[in-house]
């Protein structure tokens, strides 16, 4: 998903304006001229300048209308699905792991990911199982990272 220079400039300018508007209510430190709003406003100002600069350059180069070039992969339905799948797997881990526990969630996430990429089923099962137990042992046991517990697999703890 590639935007043209003119679009990028417009987006940057809009971003700057949005940051400025969002910072209006950040008040200064009592008794001072500066505070929470200083930094966002400075960022907004320079971002806006960069946006104007890019727009000027694009217009001078002959661009007239903002546009969007779709990368080649967006034309392949399965590629788009695979991209959505990997994002979905991360969301699934965030939602499921605190409830079900680390081991089963990690195993399933890796298994599904490997199957999507076309790994053969036995290999995928073995690698996912070994990796999830290895991570659980090294992070959970050795490094004391409190990975979510799973009540029905807690003999690993």
């Amino acid at each position: 998903m590639r935007v043209t220079d003119l679009t990028l400039g417009l987006l940057t300018l809009l971003g700057g304006i949005a940051i400025y508007l969002s910072a209006i209510n950040f008040h200064a430190i009592p008794g001072q001229d500066y505070g929470a709003g200083t930094m966002p406003r400075a960022i907004a100002f320079v971002t806006g300048l960069v946006g104007v600069f890019i727009i000027t350059k694009a217009v001078m180069a002959g661009e007239r209308l903002p546009g969007l070039q779709l990368a080649e992969w967006t034309r392949s339905g399965s590629a788009v699905l695979r991209m959505l799948a990997v994002l979905g797997l991360i969301v699934a881990y965030i939602v499921v792991s605190p409830v079900v526990g680390f081991l089963p969630t990690a195993f399933c996430v890796m298994l599904v990911a490997m199957l999507i990429l076309g790994v053969r089923i036995p290999t995928a099962i073995i690698v996912s199982a070994v990796t999830s137990v290895a991570i659980q042992q090294s992070f959970g046991k050795l490094l004391l990272v409190p990975l979510p517990r799973s009540d029905f697999l807690n003999f690993f703890w």
Partner: peptide, 25 residues
């Protein structure tokens, strides 16, 4: 194709471990 899912897992565990919270993920 085998490595990428494993890396994804490490990414998630590493992001979790920094403040022990799924917010990191």
């Amino acid at each position: 194709k085998v490595l990428m899912p494993v890396i994804l897992m490490f990414c998630m565990v590493g992001s979790f471990a920094i403040n022990n919270s799924v917010f990191g993920i």
